[in-house]
Simulated scan of single mutants.
Amino acid sequence: MLLKPLRFCVMALAAAGLSAGASSAQVSDSNVRAVNAARNWAINQNGGLSVYRPADCMFQTNTGGGACLIETNSQGYTFRFLGGAPGWQQQGLAPNTETVVTVSPDGRTITNVGYNGSPR
């Protein structure tokens, strides 16, 4: 008799844990657009993919930019990331560019370029 309520409690706790994990892992569509907009802006401004690659975190749309996302507020999304020659991170080379860019809250427009130059 006690098995039915116990089984229900276990299933309810498992479902609550799964839904909590899923909600904390979700990234908004505007955040994904913002990562893409910031990354593409930097690629275009720094010579294209044949000469420049942004840090790996700027390709992590599933985390909204991961460590590259430094601020989210009413002004939008601000990213700070390094970049360099293709393969720079994988080969352990030093980056040659630092970029700080803010994207609108809807993730569609670059609203501010705080910095785009040699790493500080």
Rank of each mutant, 00 (worst) to 15 (best):
M1K: 01
M1G: 11
M1W: 11
M1F: 10
L2N: 13
L2S: 14
L3T: 15
K4N: 11
P5D: 07
L6E: 13
L6C: 06
F8S: 05
F8E: 11
V10M: 02
M11S: 08
A14Y: 01
A14E: 00
A15V: 13
A15E: 01
A15M: 13
G17L: 06
G17E: 05
G17I: 11
S19K: 08
S19P: 08
S19V: 15
A20V: 13
A20D: 10
A20Y: 01
G21E: 01
A22M: 14
S24Q: 10
A25S: 14
A25R: 14
Q26D: 01
V27F: 06
V27Y: 07
S28Q: 10
D29S: 12
S30E: 15
V32L: 07
A34S: 01
A34V: 02
A34R: 10
V35R: 04
N36Q: 15
A38Y: 01
R39S: 04
R39Y: 00
N40F: 04
A42S: 14
N44I: 04
Q45K: 09
Q45N: 14
Q45F: 07
N46K: 05
N46P: 00
G47D: 07
G47V: 04
G47Q: 08
G47C: 08
G47R: 09
G48K: 03
G48Y: 02
G48E: 06
S50R: 09
V51D: 06
V51S: 14
R53D: 07
A55R: 04
F59K: 07
F59M: 04
F59H: 09
T63Y: 01
T63E: 14
G64R: 03
G65V: 00
G65N: 04
G66Q: 04
A67K: 15
A67G: 10
L69C: 14
N73M: 04
S74G: 05
Q75C: 03
Q75H: 08
Y77V: 00
R80D: 13
R80F: 02
R80N: 09
F81G: 09
F81I: 03
L82I: 00
G84T: 07
G84Y: 09
P86N: 14
W88C: 01
Q89P: 00
Q90W: 00
Q91A: 13
G92N: 02
L93S: 10
P95H: 12
E98C: 04
E98A: 14
T99P: 00
V101R: 09
T102V: 06
V103G: 05
V103Q: 04
S104P: 12
P105C: 02
P105E: 03
G107F: 03
G107W: 03
G107M: 09
R108H: 11
T109P: 08
I110G: 08
I110C: 07
T111F: 03
N112P: 08
N112K: 14
G114V: 10
Y115V: 13
N116P: 00
N116R: 13
N116D: 11
S118F: 02
P119Y: 06
P119T: 12
